[in-house]
């Protein structure tokens, strides 16, 4: 395959711009905030009787991080430089723990949760959407998947609360929070694996149930379009097996817009997932973000949002770069 150079260049450019926007928002917003958030926070903590031993140090670290010294342009350049280096300074509430440290602790949970639930929901939704049309299930088929469609319209976090109530509180089938049993070892054993799976089940189920319906609808309408295409008529005339037509003709063509939509939906999927983490106190970026918000730990908030945007942009980039491999026409459509 000829490499679609201009397509790839555009995708990379888009990635860089999105990350740059996120970093710049992080730079600008604290400077627009009224008063001095850091001073206010230290004052409030002292008021609450907390002893801040390193308060002077903390303030200095913060001032340096938020680069309140030097010209605005110098501050901006040094901010962007440290953002590229993934350096967000120290946590305010867990001083002197580096923000990147906290993020790296939480990131695997979030990525794991996202990867598993996106793969399941995309696969299940897409396959069901195609099958409903291909097997000519018709109106009654829509009836079968109607619950999935309705669940798809509800935000993931509302579904999470319902699942939490039903399966954790009422039925007590699954734990209500966390990713491991308390004090469990992190060794890779079957028992640990089951534990992790049990803790992940409800968060994953929330995301899957809330997004599979969307993939289903999209695939259904695209499959209808494909079944009316000229190439499908020819495929039937060729006497090919049903399975071959379904995979090589129907799925392969109908899935293309789904993949494009996956890239577009990535932001809202990640946004939804961090809220699901909050509901289940799942120890990913979402829960840490909530704690940082409660503690007004601004450096962590900034590091978290930046990391999340970076994750979204990377996921979009990966999907975009895989796309030409699925659709050989990309280089031409681009022009």
């Amino acid at each position: 395959m000829r490499l679609p150079v201009s397509y790839i260049a555009k995708r990379f450019l888009s990635f860089v711009v999105v990350v740059w926007v996120a970093a710049s928002v992080n730079f600008i917003v604290p400077r627009m905030a009224p008063g001095d958030p850091i001073g206010a926070m230290v004052a409030r903590m002292e008021l609450q009787g907390e002893v801040i031993e390193d308060s002077a140090e903390l303030i200095a670290a913060y001032r340096e991080k938020f680069g309140l010294d030097g010209s605005l342009w110098d501050q901006y350049v040094s901010y962007l430089t440290s953002a590229v280096q993934f350096d967000f300074g120290h946590s305010l509430s867990y001083f002197p723990r580096p923000v990147s440290d906290i993020i790296l602790d939480a990131l695997p949970y979030t990525l794991g949760l996202l990867a598993v639930s996106i793969i399941i929901s995309f696969t299940v939704g897409t396959l069901l959407g195609a099958l409903i049309v291909w097997l000519k299930i018709g109106r009654s088929g829509i009836g079968l998947v109607a619950p999935l469609l309705l669940l798809g319209s509800i935000p993931q976090y509302l579904l999470a609360i319902i699942l939490l109530f039903v399966f954790s509180f009422a039925l007590r089938w699954f734990p209500s929070g966390g990713a491991h049993a308390l004090g469990a070892s992190h060794d890779f054993t079957l028992a640990n694996f089951i534990e992790v799976a049990r803790h992940g089940a409800l968060p994953i189920m929330s995301i899957v149930l809330a997004s599979a319906g969307g993939w289903l609808i999209g695939m259904r309408s695209m499959t209808i379009t494909v079944t009316r295409s000229d190439y499908l008529t020819l495929a039937k005339a060729k006497g090919l097996s049903q399975l071959r037509i379904f995979y090589h003709y129907v799925i392969r063509n109908a899935i293309l817009p789904q993949v494009t939509n996956l890239a577009i939906a990535m932001g809202s999927i990640v946004g939804g997932a961090i809220l699901v983490e909050v509901v289940f106190t799942y120890p990913g970026l979402g829960s840490h973000l909530l704690r940082a918000i409660n503690n007004q730990d601004f450096t962590v908030i900034q590091g978290m949002t930046y990391t999340l945007v970076l994750s979204v942009a990377s996921a979009v980039l990966i999907v975009d770069l895989l796309y030409p491999w699925l659709d050989p026409r990309i280089n031409y459509e681009d022009q």
Binding site: T305, L308, V309
Partner: peptide
Amino acid sequence: AIPALLILVSIASFL
């Protein structure tokens, strides 16, 4: 391509 909710989190937690 910009995840709006995440940017909004960054803004709303300061302002």
